[in-house]
Amino acid sequence: MAGPGRGTGSGDATYRALVRPLLIPSWLVIGILMVLPVALMAVYSFLTKEFRGGVIWDFTLAAYDQFFLDRGLFGDEPPRIEWTYITIFWRSIWQAVLATLLCLLIGFPTAWFIATRPARTRGIWLFLVTIPYWVNLLIRTVSLRFLLRDQGPMNEALMSLGLISSPISIINTNLAVQIGLFYSYLPFMVLPIYAAVERYNFALSEAAADLYASRWATLREIVLPVVKPGIIAGCILVFIPSLGAFLAPDLLGGAKTFMIGSLIDEQFRGSQGNWPFGAAVAMILMTLVLIVLLVYARAQGRAPR
């Protein structure tokens, strides 16, 4: 028999030590198929492009130079700031910010409304918001495009109602892309806020009302600060995919509504592609997202528990 307690193990401590190695498969898969590729992408952004699509292993800053600096058509002029890509980023950020705000404006009241339903009907409301969340995003975007077309059901309905005399052209505008982003990611806003409101202690609202706060003052002073983690989580979940969105701008927008996702996609299509440049744009996009996540993590860290 082994010595008392030492070396051998029967208890919880042993159990905990035994299950920890079960993390290894997830480390391996995500490490090899995600972390390593992202690291490799960073390396690619410093390589030289090959004209048939691909790379030559010569290190250069050409991709980032192309992104930020304009050296003229033949590359021999003094460098000026290249606005083309910065404009695309700026447009993407704006569209993502707007979509986030719009989703919040509709998503918060929806989440609140559902969370305050009696337990019996709450499930049904929640179920209704959850379904679109799991419906194929491509199909949803295609459906929206079908609806918004010049000769589509929306214009026909408006015309037959006599509200407009000729079809409104929405497709291929920034507005269409904005509607697309809002529509795509709205459920992402509702669900985390719902989770936060569901945990909210409504006695706090009653206490505020008891202390002479109006309904809206209670919302501003008590509810919003308390459910803030859910709101921020929702905003992140809408903002990040909106920033890198591909389907909404591609299917609903046009040349003037070009966003980061399409810019990256273009670099990897056929022989016209530029892999190092595409990798560099992806790196810049990821850096932006990382900054947002870090700000979020710090805000979470400071929040009272």
């Binding site: 008392p4 307690g5 208890g11 042993t14």
Partner: peptide
């Protein structure tokens, strides 16, 4: 829990 075996003793005899 030591008697049940859910924890291991650090020293002593059981």
């Amino acid at each position: 829990r030591l008697i049940a075996g859910f924890e291991d003793i650090s020293e002593g005899e059981i």
